[in-house]
Design a protein around this nucleic acid. Structure first.
Lengths: 143, 143
DNA sequence: AAATATTAGTTTGAAATGTAACTAACAACC
DNA sequence: GGTTGTTAGTTACATTTCAAACTAATATTT
């Protein structure tokens, strides 16, 4: 990038943000309209739906989310009866979180939507582009 | 993506968000620590610094930002004396926004940081990857 | 030219987020 | 076994954002 062609649109933090925003908004309506969920709630639901029961701590680590965010999302999902907590006997600070039957149904539904949505996005790219995109994004996320 | 390998990390809205967040946080300290600016303020500053004087409306369009966000960012930048408004004589609803000398200096400084930061990110990728990334992000942002 | 509709931008109140302090349980040390 | 330190998770407050209502200026319609 030379001095003359610096373009906000090519500046990675900016370009990533614009793309992330656009993609998020597109998917948002699925979990927001249908279930009144927030982005963090959706993420927590997905982690539990995908990987089974785990503690809030583990979700924090896997999703790179701050514990207050997870705490609030868990509270909201519990209120919606999508998730249940169970205190662990050996360490009472820990709670095992798992989806209720209803939560699992919601997960299954959103999971399907996610796949369709992702396929829709992917259809604009070649397999190779898609591959590069995935690898790059993953790398950046880990910086 | 088959049923069995659905991975949140490969789901585009999610992956984009994680990457965008990581990249944003990295660059944030430049404008936040040094100048106490918010992301929207930085964007407005860049648009003005890059393209010269324009109205808030134009910034909204070019940056895909809602007018309330721009309004507040403009207010904040004005308070910091980085930007000045001038009412247009022919249509008094419109204000021409432009950077003050100080604002230009800040822009020049952040511009340099942006280039260095971007180069740092880019160094992890081949020219070809970088190219694919740019095109994909741009395409997604326009969906 | 009076009435209505648009447009640029601001303000306001509600929802969401981030940061830091807090509580409760466990661990380690003396 | 009491003091100190950590850890999991929640609460509280301040900041940020979002959506909708609002103001002031211009455009349009009759």
């Amino acid at each position: 990038m030379t001095d003359d062609d610096f373009d906000l649109g090519q500046f990675l933090p900016y370009a990533l943000n614009q793309a992330a925003e656009a993609a998020s908004i597109g998917f948002q309506k699925h979990y927001r309209q249908r279930y009144g969920m927030l982005r963090t709630e959706w993420r927590v639901l997905f982690h539990l739906g995908r990987n089974g029961a785990m503690t809030a701590k583990t979700i924090c680590e896997r999703a790179s989310l701050h514990k207050t965010k997870v705490s609030r999302a868990v509270g909201a999902l519990e209120k919606k009866r999508f998730l249940a907590r169970e205190e662990q006997a050996n360490d009472r600070r820990l709670e095992t979180l798992s989806l209720t039957r209803q939560g699992q149904a919601v997960y299954a539904d959103l999971y399907k939507s996610a796949k369709v949505f992702d396929a829709g996005l992917s259809s604009h790219f070649s397999a190779q582009e898609r591959d590069v995109l995935n690898r790059c994004l993953e790398k950046i996320a880990k910086l």
